[in-house]
Design a binder for these strands. Sequence first.
DNA 1: ACTGAAAATTCTCTGGC
DNA 2: GCCAGAGAATTTTCAGT
Lengths: 159, 159
Amino acid sequence: MSSHILDQTDRDIISLLQQDARLSSKEIAAKLRKRPTTIFARFNKLKALGYLKGSIMLIDREKVGMLMAVFINIQLNDHHAEALYEFQRDIKAYSEVMECYHTTGQVDFVIKVVVQDMLAYKDFLVQNLSKMQNVKAYTSHFVINEIKRELAYPLDNLV
Amino acid sequence: MSSHILDQTDRDIISLLQQDARLSSKEIAAKLRKRPTTIFARFNKLKALGYLKGSIMLIDREKVGMLMAVFINIQLNDHHAEALYEFQRDIKAYSEVMECYHTTGQVDFVIKVVVQDMLAYKDFLVQNLSKMQNVKAYTSHFVINEIKRELAYPLDNLV
DNA sequence: ACTGAAAATTCTCTGGC
DNA sequence: GCCAGAGAATTTTCAGT
């Protein structure tokens, strides 16, 4: 690992950690046929260089009572810089809004909202989204089945 | 933690682990003013009961060369059970498709595709998506800015 | 469910290659 | 950049309350 170019070992470590963030240096070392201290040093470097941005425990969304996930496509009235900034700042503040992306196409923003139930969703729409001045139109797409949700990027022919 | 009802400590542990999956029992114990072994026992139970579904290390998507994220809304021709099942099985198999949701509304499926660059995206469309018989229409929404991507569910007034 | 102590394992630092 | 050794810290088990 000379500077900012990842070699195969770096990619292997990242790939393994994307599958299980709690792997120990020893466990990674065993899989890659290296020494634990070597893995430890690379892990620290990957973290220092900003490749690794923290780890999270994935939990069963429905089991903890967050039964409803919704994708909402949003169109704005005013697309000037200041108006865009304000919308982003405000939408980001809602805890129901888990994800928000500025996109190209017919739609300006794609957001993912996760709430307990339809009542909570209605509250979000009526009390929050509908009151945002710059929102021209939105369409809700309720998730009825999660076919795939892979959060680990494939790093095979890369970097 | 009697059986399947989460108490405040359980929710606290889950919340902390959603922020950092690598927290040790000792670290969690210190934050919650409990003993490490108590946290350890609860951690094992939460895992055994299926609340915790594994951990992942988050990495800098653009830094590792995955420069392009796209949401694609897909409409199908045939909505019968067998056709739906086949579509889901096939779309799931593509490594470029990170997420796929069956949704209500004008759109049948929302998928998130992550690739290196526009060339890789073109290849995915031309060689894969366009060749799926049951796909009637699709619209691409390129992510030009990620405003928010929160993966930890808020468990405050819940369960 | 929680505690406390002990054993096994891992982390983390230092120095040498 | 890799490896080895050793002390410190942690994980994990287990018996007791």
